[in-house]
């Protein structure tokens, strides 16, 4: 009798759970579907509030318009360049330091780890950073975006944890064969670390692709903007952040142009997401292991 009751309770729970999780999926995906529908809709249909999940006044002309805008392409190309350069530098620095930190009986290791970890909980703050970057003459240069965020301590700790888990015997054997530390890192450790390297590449690349604030602070010329700033400037019109008091309608950039830009900015991430998300998850798991 008791088991039957529990069984029914369980079935009800499974049913309710299914409904809740379906709700979560719908709520998560809804804004994406809405924005795609808007990007394919006629401007008048959007203005009159007809566009929800399905495009109204279906048209590709907005895509053609945005794609033929030279500023958009310059900014898009900038994003690609910034992302590639920044990711490479970040990978180099992070790998080197993580490898050093993974050597458990290196003298001064605790101090070296402390230097990195302390910055997770205390940072110089916006103003001193701004003053520094400005006085280094890095305004309007790619370095203002690349260098200040070149090492992410979370990523550093993930890599360190991974290196610590590699079998020590291989490195010892290589050392006995006379291979130097550099050789060991390049020819023994890195080939064994493809999984974590892929994860780190993705973490950094996505972060730099998405970043906007550094460019917002330090870039003043339109042809240096990444695409995120291109998009921000479109949105700024809509929130009235740039000029207030004026008629909101006049300031608003055509809604479908914003939508198209958003779709094109998300597209590369959505494109690779299904194939790489397991790497992201592995990365977070590694990071969770206390170092």
């Amino acid at each position: 009798m008791v088991t039957v009751d529990r069984g029914r309770g369980h079935r009800v729970f499974q049913w309710v759970n299914g409904v809740i999780l379906t709700g979560v999926v719908i709520v998560t995906l809804y804004p994406f579907v809405n924005i795609v529908a808007r990007s394919l809709s006629d401007e008048n249909a959007i203005r009159s509030g007809q566009v929800n999940l399905i495009p109204r006044g279906f048209t590709f002309t907005t895509y053609e318009y945005v794609v033929s805008d030279p500023t958009f392409w310059t900014n898009y190309r900038n994003t690609v360049v910034y992302t590639v350069v920044a990711t490479l530098i970040a990978m180099f620095l992070t790998t080197c330091y993580a490898y050093v930190l993974s050597k458990k009986d290196l003298k001064g290791r605790t101090f070296l780890i402390g230097i990195a970890v302390f910055t997770m909980f205390f940072s110089g703050g916006l103003i001193p950073n701004y003053v520094l970057i400005t006085s280094l003459g890095m305004k309007d240069a790619i370095w203002a975006i690349v260098l200040p965020n070149a090492v992410n301590v979370f990523n550093l700790l993930i890599m360190k944890t991974f290196f610590e888990g590699l079998p020590a015997e291989l490195e010892e054997a290589a050392a006995i064969d006379g291979m130097s530390t550099y050789g060991i890192l390049l020819r023994i450790v890195l080939p064994l670390s493809k999984a974590v390297i892929a994860t780190m590449l993705l973490f950094y690349a996505v972060a730099f692709w998405n970043s906007w604030f550094a460019a917002f602070l330090y870039m003043s010329q339109t042809d240096l903007f990444p695409v995120t700033i291109f998009l921000r400037n479109l949105i700024a019109g809509a929130t009235g952040a740039s000029s207030v008091g004026a008629d909101a309608m006049d300031l608003t950039v055509a809604a479908n142009i914003k939508s198209v830009t958003m779709v094109l900015t998300i597209l590369p991430i959505l494109g690779i997401y299904p194939f790489v998300q397991r790497y992201f998850i592995t990365g977070v798991m590694l990071g969770a292991v206390k170092g």
């Binding site: 809405n34 808007r38 509030g49 998405n210 995120t228 949105i235 929130t239 958003m262």
Partner: peptide, 29 residues
């Protein structure tokens, strides 16, 4: 369910802001 729910984490803050603005705009859903 997991794959879908992780998705917003990978968006640029600018895109998130854009989605919010469109969602709650006068002509939005």
């Amino acid at each position: 369910v997991q794959s879908v729910s992780y998705l917003p984490h990978f968006l640029s803050m600018v895109v998130v802001a854009g989605l919010i603005v469109e969602l709650v705009s006068v002509d939005g859903p």
